[in-house]
Design a protein around this nucleic acid. Structure first.
Lengths: 228, 228
DNA sequence: GCAAAAGTGATAGTAATACTATTATTTTTG
DNA sequence: CAAAAATAATAGTATTACTATCACTTTTGC
């Protein structure tokens, strides 16, 4: 699968950046090191000035790529979901059996990223950690409706609707397909967070993965319908 | 049920405030109006200075009740979960049938608050909105492990463990009881958010409530186990 | 190879934030 | 009514989140 990605540019909404960070060495460095720094100090403490210091660049230069740190976060997380979408599509497109395809999709969407395939300058292991800890902050804002209209959450939306379709392929009569799809994706992030910080609130640990929990949850609720 | 609450003080961790806001008129006003203002402008734009202007009080006076706005948010959300815990306990404690009790609990935890019982100075409708939009921000921080140890998330923890127990009462062999309980509570907030802002990502709307979705989800996964 | 253009860096400046400290004034209460 | 407690007013600091300007460096197109 690795070769399928090499040379392939992950597409995110162009309004998220002032200048395409993929178009220059500095741009790539900004993206690469912002992930490292956000993981290290958290998004709340993260500033362009600190990032500038890390990459040996001026604050003002970073502003030429991203309007502000909120847009940068949207860029990073959009990149993440686009990457997940590719993984989902490529890992399920030759599976005929709907149930098996759904299981594969759930695995892709809820597994913890351990090894970095490291296709580019982006470290997917760190980016996954950033998404778990910071993604909600990108939409829990007063500007969310406007930004939704502007397509800033396009990739995330599309990904969830793909999963919804796969759920309906298993059981076309299930009435909560969108809610279940969003529960799996958002819940996947949340269970990883709980595992790391509120361990009594989840059963997921070394031996039991969120993927196992969600696979059981989804299949049982979809099959319950048909069994009566 | 209303009378059970009147005169009953909801208990939150004492380290969350410098001076108990319940102990004075100003303290109550701070709590009351902070909910209104956070709902209005969002937690990110909320400052003690703006709150001071709203209540006709000085910024420095607010600092005598809460160290900073993060602690205030923890206070407000703790109050909310404590209030939910009471609702849960009182509405289920005389139900013998485990399945029925669980259904009631899920209803209490995932329903939208519409009417304000308005026991005190706190508007529960607004507070519910604040929790939906801001609760994640209270734990998605770099200080979460320290604050967890200090008991800042005690009430929330206890509430989820109560739900876990009720899940196990229905099916003692279910292996993901804590994960399912946290999925219901956190997912409940999330589905309300989606309904308001990303409507294509949920099936919940005027006619279909998150409570119905979660009831079906939980009962089907718990029963699937026993049916095979 | 050179000039224009584009990109980057350095510096300065502003309004707002998130506080702390001090002192003055008002309110409570013993 | 005096002492104590609570609140208000003012001032001050470091940091944030930018914007603007200008200098310098690198790229590119002829």
């Amino acid at each position: 699968m690795k070769q399928l990605f090499s040379g392939l540019k992950i597409g995110v909404n162009e309004d998220l950046y002032v200048k395409d960070p993929e178009s220059s060495a500095l741009g790539k460095k900004i993206v690469e090191k912002s992930i490292v720094l956000i993981d290290e100090i958290g998004f709340d403490s993260f500033t362009f000035k600190k990032l500038g210091a890390v990459i040996g660049s001026n604050e003002s230069s970073i502003y030429r790529y991203f309007e502000n740190k909120h847009k940068l976060l949207l860029y990073l997380t959009s990149w993440y979901w686009a990457w997940k979408e590719y993984q989902l599509v490529f890992s399920t497109n030759n599976i005929e059996n709907a149930e098996q395809a759904l299981e594969t999709a759930i695995n892709v969407l809820t597994r913890r990223i351990k090894k970095d395939s490291h296709t580019s300058h982006i470290d997917e292991v760190l980016l996954n950690k950033v998404v778990v800890n910071e993604y909600s902050k990108s939409y829990l804002t007063k500007e969310v409706d406007k930004e939704y209209k502007d397509g800033y959450f396009e990739v995330y939306n599309r990904l969830i609707l793909r999963l919804k379709k796969m759920i309906l392929a298993v059981n076309g009569k299930y009435p909560f397909a969108a809610a279940l799809a969003s529960t799996v994706v958002e819940g996947g992030l949340h269970q990883h967070f709980l595992r790391d910080h509120f361990p009594t609130l989840t059963d997921c640990n070394e031996k039991l993965s969120p993927a196992e929990y969600f696979n059981y949850l989804v299949l049982s609720t979809l099959k319950y319908n048909t069994n009566g």
